[in-house]
Amino acid sequence: MSNRLSGESSPYLRQHAENPVDWYPWGEAALRRAREEDKPILLSLGYAACHWCHVMAHESFTNPEIARLMNQYFINIKVDRQERPDLDELYQGALQMLGQGGGWPLTVFLTPQGEPFFAGTYFPPADGYGRPGFARVLRELGEAWQQQRTALRQQAGQFLQGYQTLEARLLAAQAPAQEDLPAVAARLFAAHSDPLYGGLGQAPKFPNPAALLQHCLKMQEAG
């Protein structure tokens, strides 16, 4: 049976219409159900040309046991980042506050009020590649919401504080520059380049301007 994504205009969302996951598109129906049932939200953002989005869809979203855990513990929302770049930008910030470089698929766990308390990108179905398995993440976060909800809400509060700090930095960055910004950018790229395999940082090497901006702001603060 098709889920709620079958009638969406996005071809990317319709690709997930036959998943056993009880997907919602982003909207009031999903958010209202999360509030009414006091269940956390699993938000998955991706796009049609994203290789790892399709890998995770094949490995996890078509897996009946993983879908059962998703449906049991969470209200599941699928978003096409090309339709909602505002949501992508907002929740990529939560991922960066965890010290990760960002990328897709973006997997964010939210309170029923939409506040992030945990985030990641691609998760393999079982532990591997130095990453926790998606089934384990679902089970542990779902049980933590039932048994340690106060701690997760505190984590969400820390994310909100981080957003406020980032907003203040962005406002400060609009002030007249005290240093040659191209030189700052050049040092930033050099410091985070991988001389052996190319690209920036370690895998996954998704281009993420927001993450680089945060590094640049830190360098400016350090003088």
Rank of each mutant, 00 (worst) to 15 (best):
R4Y: 00
S6P: 00
S6D: 09
G7A: 11
G7N: 11
E8K: 09
Y12C: 00
L13V: 13
Q15S: 10
H16Y: 02
A17H: 03
E18V: 08
N19S: 08
N19D: 12
P20D: 01
W23L: 05
E28F: 03
E28W: 01
A29F: 01
L31M: 15
L31T: 12
R32W: 10
R33T: 14
E36M: 07
E36I: 09
E36K: 08
E37A: 15
P40F: 08
P40H: 02
I41S: 10
S44G: 06
G46W: 09
A49N: 06
A49K: 13
C53K: 12
V55G: 04
H58I: 09
S60G: 07
S60R: 02
S60C: 12
P64G: 14
P64K: 12
E65H: 13
A67S: 10
A67Q: 03
Q72P: 05
Q72N: 01
Y73L: 01
Y73G: 03
F74V: 03
I75W: 00
I75S: 00
N76I: 09
I77N: 14
K78W: 04
D80A: 11
D80M: 07
Q82F: 07
R84T: 09
L87S: 07
L87C: 09
D88S: 14
L90T: 15
Y91K: 03
Y91F: 12
Y91W: 02
G93V: 00
A94M: 09
Q96T: 14
L98M: 13
G99F: 08
Q100D: 05
Q100G: 05
W104L: 08
P105V: 13
T107M: 03
